[in-house]
């Protein structure tokens, strides 16, 4: 285990949605520059864990620490700013604005941050070849394939230069070939940008792209045992 402080850490996280207990004391830590897979069956609470770590949800109890700061204690406005500038997000589907062409979808975070239009579009343009999207800049989301759409989402997630990319089942709607492409690109480009990645998935082949994996079961995290121990 590295002795350095983790980039992002969640300790003792609990979260209820009404009567459903989604998280019952989950722990997780993410080092700088690593790709972490969060695995588990559906309903295990892995997505909820991701949302708590990213500051989208506030846990009922426990702490989330990013870069030494308590995210769960922050005001909504501060957390929103964090998500906008320092975190990047890739969801399973439906995140692209249907009426904006691909270039503007990618440039959207920059535009929202107040960058000039020309600058933002130029920055987005630079991302197209990196993700194999050449020539698709002016297509609408409804006119490209699922795999291409997810790559656009990745470009948008990375365009602001985030420290951490949160990916929630990024290949869930894709077939295995497209899924491989997307994961390969996500991991390689993130490493190029020195961004850490947390991927939530239930597929082992997707988790295999990560450096390390954590399992979530029934709202708790299960740390993997050391390999080679006798049953």
């Amino acid at each position: 285990m590295s002795e350095a402080t983790p980039l992002l850490a969640g300790r003792g996280l609990h979260k209820n949605f009404g009567l459903t207990q989604a998280l019952r004391g989950a722990d997780l830590s993410l080092e700088a520059g690593e790709v972490l897979a969060v695995m588990g069956p559906s309903g295990s609470g892995k997505s909820t864990l991701l949302h708590c770590l990213a500051g989208i949800l506030t846990p009922d109890s426990g702490e989330v620490i990013f870069n030494g700061q308590r995210i769960d204690r922050m005001l909504d406005g501060q957390r929103t700013r964090l998500r906008r500038t320092v975190f990047g997000f890739v969801f399973q589907f439906g995140q692209l604005v249907p009426e904006l062409p691909v270039l503007e979808n990618i440039a959207l975070p920059l535009l929202l941050a107040g960058k000039g239009r020309r600058v933002a579009i130029a920055a987005a343009q630079a991302w197209l070849p990196r993700l194999g999207l050449e020539g698709l800049g002016h297509r609408l989301p409804g006119e490209i394939s699922g795999g291409q759409g997810q790559r656009v989402a990745i470009a948008r997630a990375l365009v602001t230069g985030p420290r951490i990319v949160f990916a929630d089942e990024p290949t869930g709607s894709l077939d295995s070939v497209a899924g491989d492409q997307v994961m390969e690109l996500l991991v390689s480009v993130a490493k190029e940008e020195h961004a850490s990645v947390i991927v939530v998935t239930h597929e082992p082949r997707v988790a295999a792209y990560a450096d390390r994996q954590v399992t979530v079961r029934d709202g708790r995290t299960v740390q993997p045992a050391v390999v080679g121990g006798a049953p």
């Binding site: 082992p204 082949r205 988790a207 792209y209 450096d211 299960v222 993997p224 045992a225 390999v227």
Partner: peptide, 20 residues
Amino acid sequence: AHEYLDAQREAHLKVMRELT
């Protein structure tokens, strides 16, 4: 059987990571 199965899964995943 969780402990054993988790260790077994981790072993499988480790191999998968290396192969990937």
